[in-house]
């Protein structure tokens, strides 16, 4: 019996060791080597002292913050309204459906929409606003990123709203709260776990985006993701790329820790 159990777990453990632990260790290991293959802490010193990298990190965090904010502002009301519909599961499915369509294709569509003579500019000219350079701007990059992320924000918020016991809302009204008071004092705090999960699902990918950045934002290094891609695939400076990767991993843990607190509180009380 014992042997059979062991056999079961062998391929899975092999996967953990080879594809989970080893790569993680390797990226830390690689970050300690410079471009000439010498063991050194230079990468970290460069990262921390040259303003370029810090500024890039700051920009990346700032963009990710803006993308997350825009996504949240669009998604919360969407999730809220969806929740009050009759066939809410069906409508939710319609929000989710675009995530099943290849990401590249959705991004590609925006190249056409945003181009100098594309549909958006045609529309702008039509309403008399004139044509503008849309592609390769920060705004278009953020719009497309938000577009891609909306379903991933709507879904957790929708779920946490759907879990709210309707009698809590009745109780709030019964105790004299207006619709707005009920929202701020009951619905919003109770949907926080969904909001936090949504922020987690959007913020980290927004930090590491490089495909949308390249196609819509142009040939600029504006996120941690583009920096890593550039160092690994263009300048071949794997050490520096790994160093930025380590920074990204740390940033990921910070976000997860910051958005994980809601669950902590629930567990704490018991």
């Amino acid at each position: 019996m014992m042997r059979q159990k062991t056999l079961f777990i062998v391929p899975y453990l092999l996967w953990i060791v080879l594809f989970v632990l080893a790569p993680l260790i390797l990226i830390f290991y690689q970050s300690l080597y410079n471009i000439n293959g010498q063991f050194t802490l230079d990468n970290y010193t460069t990262y921390l002292t040259s303003g370029v990298y810090l500024k890039m990190t700051f920009n990346s965090v700032w963009y990710a913050f803006l993308i997350t904010l825009v996504t949240l502002v669009i998604s919360y009301p969407t999730a809220y309204v969806l929740n009050r519909l009759h066939n809410k599961q069906f409508w939710l499915l319609l929000v989710i459906l675009p995530t099943w369509i290849n990401l590249l294709l959705k991004t590609y569509a925006f190249i056409g929409l945003f181009s100098r003579t594309g549909s958006i500019n045609q529309f702008l000219r039509f309403v008399g606003l004139g044509s503008h350079q849309l592609l390769f701007t920060d705004a278009s990059f953020m719009f497309v990123a938000a577009y891609i992320e909306i379903p991933f924000m709507v879904l957790p918020i929708f779920n946490s709203l759907a879990e709210i016991n309707p009698s809590l809302i009745n109780a709030s009204k019964d105790l004299g709260a207006s619709q707005w008071q009920t929202f701020t004092k009951v619905i919003w705090p109770l949907s926080m776990p969904g909001v936090k999960a949504g922020i987690q699902a959007v913020f980290i990918p927004s930090l590491s985006l490089f495909m949308i950045t390249r196609l819509i934002g142009g040939n600029r290094v504006i996120t941690l993701g583009t920096a890593i891609e550039e160092h690994f695939l263009t300048t071949q400076n794997w050490g520096m790329g790994s160093t930025i990767g380590v920074v990204l991993i740390i940033a990921m843990f910070i976000v997860m820790f910051a958005t994980g607190e809601a669950k902590q509180k629930g567990g704490h009380t018991r």
């Binding site: 016991n165 009698s167 009745n170 109770l190």
Partner: peptide, 12 residues
């Protein structure tokens, strides 16, 4: 005021 069947106490 109402005492609800499931109490409807605010969990937060």
């Amino acid at each position: 005021n109402t005492v609800f069947q499931d109490y409807a106490l605010f969990p937060h």
